[in-house]
């Protein structure tokens, strides 16, 4: 079967196809696409509107964490000397305690947020 015969066969097949159902209404398709466009536009607008608020909340969260860390450091510097001596005698470096305290704060915050979001 050569190229022309094949082309003829396929095109006749395509042109002679008859469908029992009419074509779907193009106006309905247009309206559906338009509605989806409007919805997407509205969602984007809302996301943009909420964006500064989300940024502000994130910044406030970081500021609160830094403040808490500084407060912990300040509190640590206020520990009386006998207490520090007791730590050293127990074999625990005061710096280790300070670092653990500083690390514990963001860890606790993270665990709290994860539990709230779950």
């Amino acid at each position: 079967m050569n190229e022309d015969e094949l082309r003829n066969l396929f095109q006749r097949s395509r042109n002679e196809e008859r469908w029992p159902e009419p074509l779907p209404d193009p106006a309905a398709l247009w309206r559906r696409a338009r509605a989806a466009d409007l919805l997407a536009k509205e969602l984007r607008r809302r996301e943009r509107a909420a964006s500064p608020l989300l940024t502000a909340r994130r910044l406030a969260g970081w500021a609160a964490l830094v403040a808490a860390e500084l407060a912990a450091l300040a509190g640590f510097s206020e520990i009386p000397k006998p207490a520090l001596d007791a730590l050293v005698n127990a074999g625990v470096s005061p710096w280790t305690v300070a670092l653990l305290t500083l690390a514990a704060l963001p860890a606790a915050t993270l665990v709290y947020r994860m539990r709230r979001e779950a």
Partner: peptide, 18 residues
Amino acid sequence: DEPEFESFYRATADRLRA
């Protein structure tokens, strides 16, 4: 626009259906 889409649809829908 809508009339342009309708014209495009009428010209292509049967081909795409096949």
